[in-house]
């Protein structure tokens, strides 16, 4: 078991080091995330009351768009010069590889969520009424998106058309995360009288299923 976690940590650290060097998150994905928020503002006529009302949904749509970029980047790092073959030959457990890759995406998503939270506060005038619910929602949704995305990224790369296929495969599957996280944020930002903690339960179930299912299925996708 210690080997499993050592391998997962090794892969996650490697992906994050590559990310820190290439600065794709900082220089490309983060500006894209903020641009999406600004464009939503233009589309909704910059009416701050409307923007505040729709902020949770806009926030999570922006997160999903950015997640697609982060996941495609995570996949392409292994595909660029045959590194995935090396990982298969290393004898590393596919489940450990999955956990490592998903962990690195998770960290990047959390960074983007922090940035986007600041974005909706500054640009849309949103107010955080329940910080704990915001944090819990952000973390659970990030786990769900990172694990599902890593699994579907492996699936799409195996089919050889990942750039176009991944969004079509992944976004419908993530619809429950979008709905649950948006409802939880509605409560946390004081937008609607819903029980955000109950929606958090849905996110928790999705996150557990995505993690376990991903760890089990990843081997079949990358191993043969």
């Amino acid at each position: 078991m210690s080997r499993f976690f050592a391998d997962a940590r090794l892969v996650a650290a490697k992906d994050l080091r590559i990310e820190a060097r290439s600065r794709v998150l900082l220089n490309q994905v983060a500006p894209f995330a903020l641009l999406v928020l600004v464009l939503f503002g233009f589309a909704l006529d910059a009416d701050q009351r409307t923007l505040r009302a729709f902020a949770p949904g806009l926030f999570w749509v922006a997160v999903l768009f950015c997640a697609l970029l982060a996941i495609q980047r995570s996949v392409s790092v292994e595909q660029a010069d045959g590194a995935l073959t090396g990982l298969r030959l290393s004898g590393m457990s596919p489940a450990a590889l999955f956990v490592g890759k998903a962990s690195a995406v998770f960290v990047q998503l959390v960074v983007l969520e922090v940035l986007l939270t600041a974005g909706i506060i500054v640009l849309y005038g949103s107010e955080v009424e329940q910080p704990l619910l915001v944090v819990a929602t952000g973390l659970l949704a990030a786990v769900a998106v990172a694990c599902t995305g890593t699994l579907y990224g492996a699936l799409a790369s195996g089919l050889g058309v990942r750039e176009t296929l991944l969004p079509i495969l992944l976004l419908p599957v993530l619809a429950p995360v979008l709905i649950g996280a948006t409802r939880a944020f509605d409560d946390a930002l004081g937008n609607a009288a819903v029980d955000g903690w109950a929606w958090l339960g849905l996110l928790a179930v999705f996150a557990v299923v995505a993690t376990a299912g991903g760890a089990l299925a990843h081997g079949a996708l990358v191993d043969e």
Binding site: K14, I18, R21, A80, D81, G82, A83, T85
Partner: peptide, 13 residues
């Protein structure tokens, strides 16, 4: 050990 046509290296490391 298999040395293939690709190097298996990470460009940014």
């Amino acid at each position: 050990a298999l040395l293939g046509h690709s190097t298996g290296l990470y460009e940014d490391l």
